[in-house]
């Protein structure tokens, strides 16, 4: 089974679940990694160190900023001449577009958010959540190559072997972009919720600290600083409920839930979040869920493993102090 792994990155910063895809690929066969971009030698090196047996590089100034069309055209041209069976990718906003378009070019199929892969001879069966994770489906794809976009954190990340290397194949870019990137209106520190192993999230409750004597939004922003501090102590990322995002406390990139991100960290701490179904579908597969809420009846407690009924403005600072002490920070 000829297996390719597409290394997804934003301006050279690799989506860590690309390495999980490499790890999965290695369990089938030797793996060819694909690195597209401009000035991507460090990524080529990293791909070998995470287990690639060969790397196909397409390095072109026009590929510096990811755009769907040239990336897809480059990928489908390569795939039609080399005929891989499987193209593994992490599931991201970029790879959904990329695999969608390349599959049109190649008249093939894409599976997204794949959480398990079984190989029985020629038959490969993929498991993926549907209906917001309320049901699981097993699917097959009769065409080749099959684009398999993996859900982050569903497969183990292989260890990095410093200094490992191998053959590099340089290939041509197809430069047919149909849009111009004019810039970024805000560059938020990249929020990588999908890959985070710890997420501390804040909800509307984060604005409820009368003791500060500030207006609601300023209070909430202070509250999110506190959430951020706890996340930092745990080496995690900051999440939010939609109510917090809609109220302008924090940007949309942080939103967890149906219309935000679906996440499954090892530890999810929900602070001042009631636990509406649209939030729960985004985080209920987290390994350990902790909820801090003033209201003992809040539905979030039905999903949580541990709960604290109390004011987050008292509990979170105490938690920060306690973790710092225990983790020796």
């Amino acid at each position: 089974m000829k297996t390719w792994v597409y290394i997804d990155h934003f301006k050279g910063e690799v989506q860590p679940s690309s390495w999980e895809a490499l790890g999965l690929g290695k369990t089938f066969d030797s793996v060819t990694a694909l690195v597209f971009g401009s000035g991507v030698e460090t990524l080529v090196k990293a791909a070998f160190e995470y287990g690639a047996d060969e790397v196909i590089v397409v390095d072109h100034p026009e590929l510096g900023d990811y755009r769907a069309e040239p990336y897809a055209s480059t990928l489908s041209a390569l795939a039609s001449s080399h005929t891989p069976d499987l193209i593994l990718l992490p599931t991201t906003a970029r790879t959904r577009e990329l695999s969608a378009m390349a599959a049109v070019d190649l008249n093939s199929g894409v599976l997204t958010d794949v959480t398990a892969v079984e190989v029985n001879g020629d038959q490969i069966v993929f498991t993926r959540p549907i209906y917001e994770g309320k049901v699981l489906e097993k699917t097959i794809c009769t065409a080749r190559p099959i684009f398999v976009a993996l859900r982050a954190r569903s497969f183990p990340k292989p260890p990095r072997q410093e200094g490992r290397s191998g053959p590099v194949i340089r290939a041509e870019a197809k430069v047919d972009a149909q849009s111009i990137i004019a810039g970024y209106s805000t560059t938020e520190a990249s929020v990588n919720l999908g890959d985070a192993s710890v997420i501390v999230s804040g909800g509307r409750g984060v604005s409820n600290n009368p003791a500060l004597g500030l207006d609601e939004k300023a209070t909430a922003q202070k509250g999110f600083e506190l959430i951020g501090e706890l996340a930092a102590v745990l080496g995690g990322a900051v999440g939010a409920s939609r109510a917090a995002v809609d109220a302008g406390y924090i940007s949309y990139a942080h939103q967890v839930g149906q219309t935000g991100k679906v996440v499954s960290p090892d530890l999810y701490i929900a602070c001042g979040i009631s636990g509406a179904i649209q939030h729960l579908v985004g985080m209920r597969n987290s390994k350990l869920i902790v909820a801090i809420n003033k209201d003992p009846e809040a539905p979030i407690f039905q999903q949580a493993h541990y709960g604290v009924v109390g004011d987050l403005f008292q509990i979170v600072p105490a938690l920060i102090a306690a973790f710092k002490k225990r983790l020796g920070k």
């Binding site: 069966v125 994770g133 699981l136 489906e137 097959i140 009769t142 541990y306 709960g307």
Partner: peptide, 20 residues
Amino acid sequence: AVKRVEIMNPPVRETVCQII
């Protein structure tokens, strides 16, 4: 090209919240 071959309920997770 993509065909569903099986559907199933996800494994139930028994969460009993322990209040600290």
